[in-house]
Simulated assay, not measured.
Amino acid sequence: MRTVRFVALGDSLTEGVGDPVGGAWRGWAALLAGGLAEEHVEFTNLAVSGAQTREVLEVQTPAGLALKPDIVSVVIGVNDTLRCTFDIHAVAERLDEVYAAFTGQGATLLTACLPDPGSMLGLPASLARPLARRQRAVNRVVHALSDRYGAIHLHAAEEDWITHRAMWSADRLHPGEQGHRQLALRFHTLLRQADRAGGPPPSPEPQFPAPTRSASLLWLATAGSAWIARRCTDLLPQLLRLAADEMRHRARGTSARLDLRAAAAVSAALAAVSISDPEAA
């Protein structure tokens, strides 16, 4: 029987953060791997916490291509939105190159759009809106490129289950075990419909009890506060500028300009990668 090779690229979401098993992270990709075939599945997780599209293109993609996967997942972009260096043109160019490399090798590509971090963290509106606008931009790019390369795409940003608190870990940014299981189950359904999954679907039922409230508070007081401090050093100055711009436009009644500006940037980014597409040319 032929071996199915599955390689996962991305950041902490794909690494499995929020789903600890045996002192390590498991996550949705590992749960999905078991359902790709009845037997003989080789799974390699190249995802690294904190990775951005640049790391996926420059580090993870060469390693993944060397493994010649039958199925490859590329779920990335949230960390790009959380940096002062955010550039939707660069995000589009990198994802276009990554998708082209794997589909050019014959791999089935898995992608997903994701909810914005501001709403998941419950940030004030003036801070959450700029992050939401950035994530919508990334999702629009992922949607368009997924369609271009025939990816199996999961609309995770639009699923009802993401609003259920039980699906999320203490940090409110990463799924807990139940959330990771839902991602794996939904990807498996899409793969089954495309006749690309021959094994049993992952179970939606959690294997371990959800973290207690005290455990969640402990995480926020220790590792969580350290995470926030690291992000604030890089993102907070620009985020405050974005929030000030947001409030200024709201006071003038011109908030729609910010959305139009973001939409124009996405359109320009997609037009630029279309020009470089041999088929489009």
Rank of each mutant, 00 (worst) to 15 (best):
M120T: 07
R94L: 06
R148C: 00
R261F: 07
V72I: 08
L242V: 03
H89M: 11
L9N: 07
G176C: 05
P115E: 01
Q52D: 02
W161G: 09
E279W: 10
E15Q: 14
V41H: 04
A90N: 10
L191I: 04
S49K: 10
A226V: 15
H143D: 15
V141M: 07
D147N: 11
R2M: 11
L217V: 15
S146G: 15
A251L: 15
T163A: 14
V74M: 02
V91N: 06
D171C: 05
S267L: 13
L32S: 09
G77L: 04
R257F: 13
L183M: 12
L121I: 12
V4W: 01
A268P: 08
P202Q: 11
A223K: 13
P206I: 07
R133Y: 05
G18K: 02
T222M: 08
V98W: 00
A251N: 06
E279F: 12
A66D: 06
G18S: 02
R2I: 07
A226H: 11
P202E: 05
T53V: 07
V59K: 04
S169F: 15
T111G: 02
L240D: 05
V142I: 14
L240Y: 07
F6L: 08
W161L: 12
A223S: 12
A132N: 13
R165F: 09
Q193V: 13
L82Q: 09
L95V: 00
L13A: 11
A144F: 01
A128F: 01
G27W: 03
R252D: 09
P117G: 14
A37Q: 08
F86W: 09
D80L: 06
L235D: 05
D11G: 04
E158D: 15
R261T: 14
P200S: 10
D147C: 07
T189Y: 07
E205F: 11
F102E: 06
A157W: 05
G104T: 08
T103E: 03
A223V: 15
A221E: 03
N139L: 02
A92H: 01
L121G: 08
V75P: 07
H155G: 06
Q238H: 12
G176V: 03
A24R: 14
T233M: 08
W28C: 01
R129A: 14
W161S: 12
I71L: 15
A268K: 13
V7H: 03
L95T: 00
A125L: 06
H143S: 09
A33D: 12
I275G: 00
A107P: 07
V74T: 10
A229N: 08
E42Q: 13
S119R: 13
T61Q: 04
A272D: 11
T189H: 10
A280N: 09
A166R: 08
R230C: 12
S225M: 03
I88S: 02
